[in-house]
């Protein structure tokens, strides 16, 4: 296990993660980021909006960015033309 910090950036603002999460690897941290983006977007949808312009930076404890997950990677949009 290692500690990963998931910093959130979107149009609402930047939210630094000072607590972090203990996860087995970067892949697990990516899964957690995807889950988080879906959680945030689902709240937005209940308010009648969805802003895909955002990202979560996954950093190690030393501050190094290990991965970036964009909001658009977390959902598939389908609509009839």
């Amino acid at each position: 296990m290692a500690r990963y910090l998931l910093h959130l950036h979107n149009r609402t603002g930047h939210t630094r993660d000072d607590e972090g999460l203990d996860l087995p690897d970067v892949a697990a941290a990516r899964d957690e980021a995807i889950r988080s983006i879906r959680s945030i977007l689902s709240s937005e949808i209940l308010e009648g909006q969805m802003d895909l312009d955002g990202r979560i930076d996954i950093c190690g404890e030393d501050g190094e960015t290990l991965a970036v997950v964009r909001f658009s990677e977390a959902v598939q949009l389908k609509a009839e033309a």
Binding site: G13, S36, S39
Partner: peptide, 16 residues
């Protein structure tokens, strides 16, 4: 029933 990142954001909103 939300994720930790979402909780962090929600606390930030309450603070703001």
């Amino acid at each position: 029933g939300i994720t930790p990142v979402h909780a962090n954001r929600t606390l930030q909103e309450l603070r703001k």
